[in-house]
Design a binder for these strands. Structure first.
Length: 187
DNA sequence: TAACATTCCGCGC
DNA sequence: GCGCGGAATGTTA
């Protein structure tokens, strides 16, 4: 009844001011990142077993630093290798597109779809964002709906709002806008 | 085939 | 301008 051994490491904890994130690695790099549990005090149960890829220690150091930088609203200096293989080809192309969005920048689901050459696939882009296994570092929180509306977030909309405002985006009610417009502030 | 983290258009306030 | 409803839409399990 035992399934084949997991192709991942057990979860490794990443301490942050918001609680412990949990990172999972495959032989190719970071494969999954979980938000801290809603109940703040719970700790990540680090579990031995699973695979133990060479370089794991350094990957985890990179992940830890990158997570902390994104939480501080800064672009991460470098990312660990990301293993996006579990995604379909379309999902992977969406996720790679998200990696180009810098902190404080936003794109609509439709804009992302357009950049992929499928301008009608905005809804499919939303679905791909929802399936993103590495939130935060693959910044699905920077994808919003058209017209400055917020769109959704699988980790809870309040988290999306918190992340965006920390990056300098103005959020009022269900509307978002970049705080610093192109060409600087109007006067 | 049904379910979506959408978008667009037309309406009525 | 805003909020609604309805239809078209691409991808996925």
């Amino acid at each position: 009844m035992n399934k084949t051994a997991s192709a991942f490491t057990g979860p490794l904890a990443i301490p942050t001011p918001e609680g412990e994130f949990a990172a999972w690695y495959s032989d190719r790099g970071l494969a999954r990142l979980d938000f801290p549990p809603r109940r703040g005090s719970a700790r990540v149960r680090q579990r031995a077993g699973g695979i133990r890829p060479p370089g794991l220690h350094q990957w985890h150091r990179l992940t830890t630093r990158a997570v902390q930088e994104v939480l501080a609203g800064r672009p991460p200096a470098s990312l660990p290798p990301l293993d996006l293989r579990p995604g379909t080809p379309f999902q992977q192309s969406v996720w790679r597109e998200l990696l180009e969005i810098r902190p404080g920048e936003m794109r609509s689901y439709g804009e992302v779809a357009g950049r992929l050459g499928r301008p009608r696939a905005s809804r499919a882009v939303g679905a791909a964002c929802g399936a993103n296994p590495i939130p935060l570092l693959v910044p699905c929180h920077r994808v919003v709906a058209a017209g400055g509306r917020l769109g959704g977030f699988s980790g809870g909309l309040s988290r999306k709002i918190a992340l965006l405002s920390r990056e300098g985006v103005t959020v009022d009610g269900s509307r978002v806008q970049q705080s610093v417009p192109r060409g600087g502030w109007p006067r």
